[in-house]
């Protein structure tokens, strides 16, 4: 066995990324540079952070549709408190993170204890967070707080004349942390077990309730953090920020090779899934004649291919069992 079956989806993902990046490099001048690579991270930092949280949810066999709305709510709360009420960012940021976590925790508890499908609960959460934005304000709130603007403008120079933003560094740290949590902690392994079989997890004596609620808490926390990073990026709070973002996030996770039915996948895959989305956007912008909606079509196509690939692999899997 030259290539272990369990690595097929993630290898496909990484190869796809490399292929796309190489193709772009040959086709467009100025594509092959460290800065383009860095820009992938800078422009998709918040996507990466959200996708990391979503990876845990999907690995546990659930789904979280509320992420985009929580991002919007985070930008809104930050902007409102900092700008309109003059609070210090040092207070606001932890508060926003806490809010995201509490929101996720609430949804997780409802999902677990009342056995309602995650899809519908997080849908309600999505409505609620989006609506709360408008309770705060209908209009955009621009932020000119010095802390936010300085974070937004800081460029950390890298060797070779390229640079990276603080947001991108936060995203990388989160991704690294998530890889550790997923593979080297009991919580991480319990998430995989839960996604593999909830009943078995119960019978093996694993803390199913705690794990499930924590997974949604984590996703809420990540979304809130993504919201803060998004605030750095946009320097505004707005109720229409990140509309439809949950789909991009789910797509990134699936293209990263995570099984939508749960239990199989890697956070590292999600990382490359996010990069693939970034590369598609970059190629389309380099192409110039192609319009932005091709991004959606290509992502939809990739989703289809990956879902079908998973289906075929898992069909083999069950035939192996016979």
């Amino acid at each position: 066995m030259s290539l272990n079956r369990k690595y097929i989806p993630i290898v496909v993902t990484i190869l796809l990324f490399l292929l796309m990046f190489t193709a772009g490099s040959f086709r467009y001048t100025g594509f092959f540079s460290l800065q383009v690579l860095m820009n992938l991270l800078i422009d998709n930092a918040f996507l990466l952070i959200t996708a990391v949280g979503m990876s845990f949810v999907i690995l546990s066999g659930g789904i979280d549709l509320s992420v985009g709305s929580i991002i919007a709510l985070s930008t809104m709360v930050s902007a409102s408190l900092v700008q309109q009420h003059g609070w210090s960012p040092a207070v606001v940021i932890p508060l926003v993170l806490l809010m995201g976590a509490a929101f996720g925790c609430g949804m997780g508890a409802i999902i677990h204890y009342f056995k309602i499908q995650p899809f519908i609960v997080t849908l309600a959460g999505m409505f609620m967070a989006r609506g709360l934005c408008y309770v705060i304000s209908i209009d955009t709130i621009t932020i000119d707080n010095p802390f936010y603007t300085s974070v937004a403008q800081t460029k950390i120079a890298l060797p070779g004349g390229s640079f990276i933003s603080i947001s991108a560094i936060i995203a990388l740290i989160i991704a690294a942390l998530a890889i550790f949590i997923a593979h080297y902690t009991r919580f991480g392994r319990n998430v995989y077990a839960l996604g593999g079989s909830e009943q078995s997890s119960l019978l093996m004596g694993l803390p199913v309730a705690r794990t499930k609620v924590l997974v949604y808490t984590l996703s809420g926390l990540c979304s809130a953090l993504a919201g803060i990073v998004f605030t750095f990026y946009m320097l505004s709070g707005y109720g229409l920020h990140a509309v439809g973002f949950e789909l991009d996030t789910i797509a990134a996770v699936v293209i990263g090779g995570t099984l939508l039915t749960g239990g199989v996948g890697y956070v590292l895959g999600t990382f490359f899934g996010v990069l693939i989305q970034g590369v598609i956007q970059t190629i389309i912008s380099f192409e110039g004649t192609l319009s932005s909606w091709w991004t959606k079509i290509v992502i939809g196509l990739l989703l289809f291919v990956f879902i079908l690939l998973q289906r075929v692999l898992s069909a083999n899997r069950s035939s192996l069992k016979q």
Partner: peptide
Amino acid sequence: TVYQEVNLCPNL
């Protein structure tokens, strides 16, 4: 106990 339908997680 080892149950009739193996109660383990096949993905682990």
